[in-house]
Simulated assay, not measured.
Amino acid sequence: MTKQAAVRLPDETYARLKALSSRTGRTATYYIREAVEEHLDDLEDVYMAEQVIARVRSGQEPVHTLDDVERDLGLAD
């Protein structure tokens, strides 16, 4: 199943997209879908990382030094 979404693009971006579509014979929709699928994982990772950073800065997320981890794993000298 697929869902439809509307996207507003700046004129220059739209022109580039249409030119690429014309040169390659693929639709603009194809390239929009490709871009979203390619970058969605990265965007999700950035969003989650920003949430963790905010929790660390507010003291709500525990942090561990490398020395602590090595000691807990029995790797410290």
Rank of each mutant, 00 (worst) to 15 (best):
E38H: 10
G25W: 04
R71S: 04
R23V: 13
D42Q: 04
E50K: 11
I53H: 02
E38W: 11
M48S: 05
Q51D: 10
K3M: 06
V63G: 04
E50L: 13
G25K: 07
G74E: 03
K18L: 08
A76L: 13
Y31S: 00
M1T: 11
D45K: 12
A6M: 06
T13G: 08
S21L: 01
L40F: 03
V63Q: 12
E61G: 06
T29V: 02
D77P: 15
T2L: 08
D42H: 11
D67V: 10
Q51F: 01
R57N: 14
E70I: 06
D68T: 09
L66A: 11
L40M: 01
A15P: 00
A5Y: 15
R26D: 01
V63M: 08
E50Q: 14
L17N: 01
K3T: 14
L73W: 01
M48R: 15
V69F: 01
E50M: 13
R23S: 15
E44C: 00
Q60H: 08
S21I: 05
I32C: 08
A6W: 09
A15H: 05
A54V: 03
Y14L: 13
G59A: 06
L20I: 01
R23Y: 09
L9Q: 10
R57P: 02
R8N: 14
H64P: 01
L43T: 02
V69W: 02
Y31N: 00
E34Q: 14
L43E: 05
L40K: 04
L66N: 08
D68W: 14
H64M: 13
R57W: 01
H64C: 09
V7Y: 07
Y30S: 10
E12P: 03
M48F: 07
L66Q: 12
S22R: 07
L43S: 02
E61A: 09
D68M: 13
D45E: 09
Q4T: 14
E61Q: 15
E70V: 09
D42P: 00
T2W: 06
